[in-house]
Amino acid sequence: MQNTDIRIRRARQADLPGICTIEHELFPDPWDESAFRDALYLFPGLFFVAETNGTIIGFVSAGMEDTGDAVYGHIMNIAVPSSSQRQGVGGRLLQRIEFECMVLGAEAMQLEVRVSNEDAQRFYQKYGYTQVFMLDSYYSNGEDAVLMMRWFT
């Protein structure tokens, strides 16, 4: 079921406590508030929240990377709390960050996801992401990551 009352807007400093609450609910090795503050400082145009009735129900942050051969957007963090999942929030956040990265010249998007997080991998595949390779012991607990990409052309 899609929630049409969802508003996607740029994140602000005042949103960081709500973002951290979601982060700590979902991830075994959550970012702390200073990491989100840094992301907001470094890439203010690539950090968004989803809200409904004034409550944050998801967020996404990304950066831009230039390898010399290609420019791509790198999704650093995306999360939707369990209570708001499967309502279209994640898809809307993903599409917004992709659009913003394309405007800045990205040819593709990249992200990392836990090898054990098959639900997230299926979600990204639904939006055109494919597995590129594995990153050994990427996470703090030693778990591997799947690097996934979506090319725009």
Results as ranks from 00 to 15, higher is better:
residue 151 W to C: 14
residue 11 A to Y: 04
residue 94 L to N: 05
residue 126 K to P: 05
residue 67 T to Q: 07
residue 87 Q to G: 03
residue 119 D to C: 01
residue 82 S to A: 14
residue 153 T to R: 02
residue 63 G to M: 09
residue 48 F to I: 06
residue 38 D to I: 06
residue 30 P to Q: 05
residue 133 F to W: 03
residue 81 P to S: 07
residue 17 P to F: 00
residue 2 Q to P: 00
residue 75 I to S: 02
residue 41 Y to Q: 14
residue 81 P to A: 05
residue 46 L to T: 10
residue 83 S to F: 01
residue 77 N to I: 05
residue 124 Y to T: 13
residue 142 G to T: 05
residue 151 W to P: 03
residue 74 H to E: 13
residue 34 S to G: 09
residue 104 L to D: 14
residue 118 E to Q: 11
residue 3 N to Q: 07
residue 120 A to D: 10
residue 65 E to C: 08
residue 57 I to P: 00
residue 26 L to T: 11
residue 57 I to L: 05
residue 97 I to C: 07
residue 141 N to P: 00
residue 79 A to C: 03
residue 7 R to D: 13
residue 53 N to M: 03
residue 91 G to M: 03
residue 63 G to H: 01
residue 132 V to I: 14
residue 122 R to D: 15
residue 3 N to A: 11
residue 68 G to F: 01
residue 28 P to D: 03
residue 82 S to K: 11
residue 106 A to V: 10
residue 106 A to T: 07
residue 144 D to A: 14
residue 29 D to F: 11
residue 93 L to Y: 00
residue 70 A to H: 01
residue 97 I to V: 15
residue 28 P to Q: 01
residue 98 E to G: 12
residue 132 V to L: 14
residue 33 E to G: 01
residue 67 T to K: 12
residue 19 I to S: 10
residue 91 G to Y: 02
residue 153 T to G: 15
residue 126 K to V: 05
residue 6 I to P: 08
residue 141 N to S: 13
residue 36 F to G: 09
residue 144 D to P: 09
residue 29 D to S: 10
residue 85 Q to V: 06
residue 128 G to A: 05
residue 6 I to R: 00
residue 138 Y to R: 03
residue 110 Q to V: 15
residue 66 D to M: 04
residue 86 R to N: 13
residue 74 H to G: 02
residue 12 R to P: 02
residue 100 E to C: 11
residue 54 G to T: 01
residue 52 T to G: 06
residue 80 V to D: 05
residue 133 F to S: 15
residue 11 A to P: 06
residue 104 L to Q: 15
residue 38 D to S: 07
residue 2 Q to L: 13
residue 98 E to S: 13
residue 133 F to T: 14
residue 123 F to K: 02
residue 132 V to N: 02
residue 40 L to G: 07
residue 80 V to S: 09
residue 79 A to Q: 02
residue 59 F to P: 10
residue 71 V to N: 05
residue 78 I to D: 09
residue 13 Q to K: 07
residue 41 Y to D: 14
residue 32 D to G: 13
residue 14 A to V: 12
